[in-house]
Design a protein around this nucleic acid. Structure first.
Lengths: 157, 157
DNA sequence: GAAAGATCGTAGGGAGCCCCAACGATTTTC
DNA sequence: GAAAATCGTTGGGGCTCCCTACGATCTTTC
């Protein structure tokens, strides 16, 4: 054995493993922070997406955030029960539900955005701002292939 | 709204979100590759760790890889049923099981290491070797706080 | 206009990873 | 020797993701 790999594991040298561990820590930090206001990560993500996209269907929310339609139902049930979003039938397409942010949803979003930001600051505490930007750039290029990013399709309009 | 955030989501600008998406893709690529030989990611991780650490207890394996003891039981049951590892009671500490690699386990590990490497190459295909190294360095510093890495504790010996 | 296909919301089951609690057996500590 | 800690095991549960299916609705095609 000419290698000098006395390190705990060859596994740790694989990007997929490190990504998994880093993501697990990020998820845990964010989840713990959001639990302070009784919310979970996906709840905040949906709330934030609704705020940006305006009244939007559940299907489009799911595509934007890579959330399973089944899970989306449960998430929106929670958010609706808490009065954070409104779920009204879309007049133009009666299959769809128009999800919109309520006033208390806007207020809650301000809280959760702060909590999410703080958790991410703790997650990347060991990194300089430049390194954090660097990391984001690298991650985007890894995620890219599976994030169509709702490209403006000329054939649909 | 004076902001120019017409981007799909503020969520995507959070490290935790990008880490989650990148990790999801990595997990999917590796899982698909390992499925070719009927194995899962954790199976390969355990196999690789056993190869490095030699005969080792289940508890230490779990700590090394951050695997829940409950899941470790199931994983080792699978590996043992496939004849890839041996699980013998430790003579020195009869609470422990000494997990060791079998000859067929060594052979299987060669396969899974190649599959894992290829999947990670595809995962980081958009990155140059230098960027990949850069990414690994940044990730290590994010994961660090939760990976004690079995530091030699002077108080225990 | 009618039939075929696609999409939407909802629901079912399940796999894989993660966390918490508990138990008998065993080892270590006091 | 008694108490505390550890080991392997089992239990339950939560979260993310995947596949299937259904009725209702919209779109496409004939």
């Amino acid at each position: 054995m000419s290698e000098t790999t006395r390190a705990p594991a060859r596994i740790r040298s694989l990007p997929s493993w490190l990504l998994g561990r880093a993501a697990a820590r990020g998820h845990r930090l964010v989840a713990e922070a959001l639990a302070q206001v009784g919310m979970r990560m996906m709840h905040h993500a949906v709330l934030s997406a609704v705020a940006e996209l305006g009244p939007v269907s559940q299907a489009e929310l799911g595509r934007s955030l890579s959330i399973d339609p089944k899970d989306m139902v449960a998430i929106l049930n929670d958010l609706q029960n808490d009065g954070l979003v409104t779920r009204a039938p879309d007049a133009k397409d009666r299959r769809k539900n128009a999800i919109a942010l309520s006033p208390s949803g806007k207020r809650r979003l301000i809280q959760t955005e702060r909590l999410g930001r703080e958790a991410n600051d703790e997650l990347t505490a060991a990194l300089t701002p430049a390194e954090r930007t660097q990391l984001m750039g690298l991650l985007v290029r890894i995620v890219q292939p599976e994030e169509p990013c709702v490209e403006t399709d000329p054939s649909s309009e």
